[in-house]
Design a protein around this nucleic acid. Structure first.
Lengths: 362, 362
DNA sequence: CCCGGCACGGAAAACGTTTTATTCGGTGCC
DNA sequence: GGCACCGAATAAAACGTTTTCCGTGCCGGG
């Protein structure tokens, strides 16, 4: 941020920048020009545009003709100056290139578009100071609200926005309901359904390959796994925890280090699962005949790890979409707005890694 | 678009929306308040903020203190009203959830942030009318410029923006240089390097699994392949073209339909390659011992298709970054700006699918 | 015929900046 | 001692809207 944004010519200044034959761009029409062309006052034009019911149908049509003739495009910036708010929404997330977040972005973009808002992409790139920088930017722009996937769980980070009265929806992190809205996926249910599936397929000796237990998602998914195992007396549950990152390499390490094989494995993310599947394959273990594997997240890669991977799908786009819609509900609410922590159900996606025969994996 | 964005309370109107204990948000400080607090005029404050060199150091400091004390945040919208332009850049692309585009978005976001611009995410979702809708939105906002990955090659689609004098940079599609800037990857070089690699590894009977030849990228990659083959007298080149989509399923079909096996395959995208690898595996064909395979694109999944996949990596983030920077160069240029069609070199990523022994695949 | 009310449309004041003139003390020079 | 000039600071006019308050002309009822 910060490098100055000045010294720019307005777009319509003396045209032709290349070969001289360029179209000379003209000063865009203002509401005043429209008014003049239609032979009415400025306020009438504004009314036609914003509350057509207040103006006579015949005059309205004259105005609309003038708008079309002049190719008039209203200037929401100027309007915002008067009304006190813009029509843009911030989307703050750690990394759009990460497929999880880019799916959130997709959903958010859809929703924002449908409601006529513009979405400002704020990729904090895992840098807290940059996250703060974006908060400042959103405050400057008088953003109407923000959807945030915060870098850390520390809620004080968000205080700057809240102080300025910018409504917030947290995504993928729960928030105490009285503090505001949030959207997230039910990870306990996800863990439960994954392990339940393994049990249904006949597995009895279940291993959970997990991330650090301090990560809420990991803890929840394990808890779900426990719930599922409790429903079967004869089932056993083990866990191995990745100390560092939940990566493909680590999944591979786990698989190579395993002394005795379980008959069902639940990896709490797809990277772990991918690595594990591959390494098991190298050890000559057949999936799903010898070991059944379930991943989590339904990354694109989940379909392709040698044998395709049964996994848990999270409705990520829905998260983004719902976040924006809840935000707008709060923002547009003329009456009261009750904060809400909406939780989505994950779904199991069946693929080869848990299925003995295969009926068309795609 | 279009649903009205009105009837919103300004952010600072009577506060407390939940339990009454909420912070009552106050009307944000204006430049006028700062001026009063510092005992100077409005214009002096503006000068301190925008061209500090014009104002006495002592007064400047007084002003800055006042700014800090009041927690003053300037309002770029109002400034834009005066100066005639905003500080936002449009990023128009077909689908952020597609990893190729989300990587572009990442690069663009980084660059925009570093230059103090905000990036408006416009996901056209493969719908031409939505793309046009976003163009309108960018015109309304007086965006300072736009980076566009257009849905179709038809250049007239872009005319609306150009008429309004909004600078454009095309990404992943070349543009005649006198029309404006563009960024793209050298697909001919990519095809050449891929097939060259197969030849170097000893393959002589090369098959290209391609998409429709009307797609420029496909045609270019094939042309590169031909160039490589011509350098070896004894090498042969075949091609099979996917009529419809370049999908995993199609790659799989190809592999199953093959009568006699080549010893090297170049798939012009990673989806095709993934499907092909898997299907060959099912037929008992060993990769890379029997057939060596090179994909294209370096999707995340490329690392994981059973045997990891040698492929061509495109500097996608660079594309996004460069696009924004070229845009800003044009926009901020006080002097002339020469349009440029910058072309990036793809790089080959070596993985198991072409390597007999394996030295650490990651 | 006069008056109250109604339906339309208009004038003008905000909104928060930037920027062009302009003023105002000083200072050095003749 | 007067003059021109200079740096520093200011007043005021935009920028393009929205919206509040009024004016006007028309109608029907008394």
């Amino acid at each position: 941020m910060g490098k100055s944004v000045r010294g720019l010519r307005p777009a319509w200044s003396y045209g032709c920048n290349s070969e001289g034959v360029d179209a000379i761009s003209v000063r865009p029409a203002r509401i005043q020009d429209v008014a003049a062309a239609a032979g009415v006052s400025v306020s009438t034009v504004s009314n036609v545009l914003n509350r057509p019911e207040r103006v006579n149908a015949r005059t309205a049509e004259r105005v609309r003709d003038a708008v079309a003739a002049l190719d008039y495009v209203p200037h929401p910036g100027a309007a915002g100056l008067r009304t006190g708010h813009s029509s843009s929404i911030g989307l703050v997330l750690p990394d759009v290139a990460n497929s999880f977040y880019s799916r959130i972005a997709r959903g958010a973009a859809d929703a924002a578009y449908e409601h006529g808002y513009s979405l400002v992409l704020c990729d904090s790139g895992d840098a807290p100071e940059r996250e703060q920088g974006y908060f400042t930017m959103l405050i400057e722009q008088r953003a109407v609200g923000a959807v945030v996937v915060p870098l850390s769980a520390d809620p004080t980070r968000l205080s700057r926005l809240r102080e300025r009265g910018i409504p917030l929806v947290l995504a993928d992190r729960a928030m105490p309901a009285q503090e505001g809205c949030s959207v997230s996926v039910d990870d306990i249910a996800g863990g439960r359904v994954a392990v339940q599936h393994l049990l249904d397929r006949g597995a009895r000796d279940i291993l959970v390959v997990n991330g650090e237990r301090t990560i809420r998602q990991c803890a929840d998914r394990y808890q779900g796994a426990r719930q599922a195992v409790r429903t079967r007396r004869e089932a056993r549950l083990g866990q191995v925890v990745a100390e560092e990152m939940m990566t493909v390499a680590y999944g591979s390490d786990i698989a190579h280090g395993l002394d005795e094989l379980p008959d069902g494995v639940f990896c709490t993310n797809d990277f772990l699962a991918a690595g594990l599947c591959r390494a098991l394959g190298e050890r000559g273990v057949k999936i799903p005949e010898d070991v059944q594997v379930v991943g989590y997240g339904d990354l694109d890669l989940a379909s392709f790890v040698g044998t395709t991977l049964t996994t848990v799908r999270q409705p990520v786009e829905e998260l983004g979409r719902a976040a924006v819609e809840m935000l707008l509900d709060e923002v547009e609410a003329r009456t009261e707005h009750a904060h809400e922590a909406r939780v989505f159900a994950p779904a199991l996606v069946l693929r080869d890694s848990t299925r003995a025969s295969s009926d068309a994996p795609f």
